[in-house]
């Protein structure tokens, strides 16, 4: 219990008459790599949206326990939740397309480098110092992920795989404690997926953060995650290690159908 980072209890989300997420309780520990799987329409992305505040929850409680103490996240705006240490990528990439790779990363650092309005408008020495420090930090991050050469390119010009990687780098630039990756391998070929697998492991180890990923690519999921949640029809179907999940009859039934019905 001591290293519990995020605790979500009895989350419910109704869209009109439709219950997208029904009484789901999940928790993520520090420096853990957790997977979230389930058939299409199971409510995986909705759950991410609830946890990061993009869509407000209908009922339930989300608490974040960090060194600074315990705080309740439900009812907070996405920006506040992001500042508390939850960052994410999106299923359908949402980069700042017309801005450069470097700016995409620097924007995510907005809250960590304070520039006064007066300073930025009249270019005080303090402004140049902050700006330089911010740029160096951004470039360092880009270098780790092999993006230095394209730092000045607009994000929209990048190939799909690189855009996905940039989105992860941008999320890391907010200095998160918990990183949500929504289908990071979608649309990638096996080689790119293998690269991504290495990348995710590296992130979790080097940055000491918790990573939660939604993924349909089972080779990726079974390779990297330590623990899995399986969702179906908006409810939690099973939880356990990858091996346990692979042998869970309920999960097999959800994915492959009932033996008797075939």
């Amino acid at each position: 219990m001591s290293n519990r980072l995020l605790d979500a209890q009895h989350l419910v989300k109704n869209f009109g008459g439709l219950t997208a997420v029904a009484d789901v309780s999940v928790h993520f520990d520090q420096n853990e790599l957790v997977g979230l799987i389930g058939p299409n329409g199971a409510g995986k992305t909705t759950l991410f949206n609830l946890l990061t505040g993009v869509t407000p929850i209908s009922s339930g409680a989300i608490t974040l326990a960090t060194d600074q103490g315990v705080q309740t996240l439900n009812g907070q705006r996405p920006a506040q939740i992001a500042q508390a240490g939850l960052s994410r990528t999106f299923q359908n990439i949402r980069l700042f397309k017309d801005l450069t790779v470097l700016d995409n990363v620097r924007i995510a650092m907005t809250n960590h480098y304070h520039e006064t309005f007066f300073g930025s408008v009249f270019r005080t020495p303090a402004f140049y110092r902050t700006e330089a420090a911010m740029t160096v930090a951004a470039q360092k991050l880009l270098a780790i992920f092999d993006l230095t050469a394209i730092a000045d390119q607009p994000a929209k010009n990048l190939p799909y795989g690189i855009q996905r990687r940039l989105e992860i780098v941008r999320a890391l630039a907010t200095k998160p404690k918990l990183l949500f990756l929504d289908e990071p391998a979608a649309g990638m070929n096996p080689e790119e997926t293998a690269d991504l697998t290495r990348l995710i492991r590296q992130i979790q180890q080097d940055f000491h953060i918790t990573v939660v990923l939604i993924e349909h690519d089972m080779s990726l999921v079974m390779n990297v995650v330590e623990r899995l949640y399986v969702l179906e029809h908006g409810a939690l179907l099973a939880t356990g290690t990858p091996t346990e999940i692979q042998q869970n009859p309920a999960v097999i039934k959800a994915y492959l159908g009932d033996e008797a019905s075939c």
Binding site: T52, V54, R77, P78, A79, A82, Q83, S87, R88, F90, R94, L95, F96, K97, D98, L99, D103, R106, I107, A108, T110, N111, Y113, E115, F117, S120, V121, F122, R123, F127, T130, E131, M134, R170, A171, A173, T174
Partner: peptide, 30 residues
């Protein structure tokens, strides 16, 4: 003054909102 604002933290935050408000919000931008 305007151009200096655009080429600062504030200007970038503002442009991020133009590009994608949901993503900007998720990056901690109020």
């Amino acid at each position: 003054v305007t151009v200096n604002f655009i080429h600062s933290r504030g200007g970038r935050a503002v442009m991020a909102i133009r590009e994608d408000e949901i993503a900007a919000e998720a990056m901690g931008i109020n």
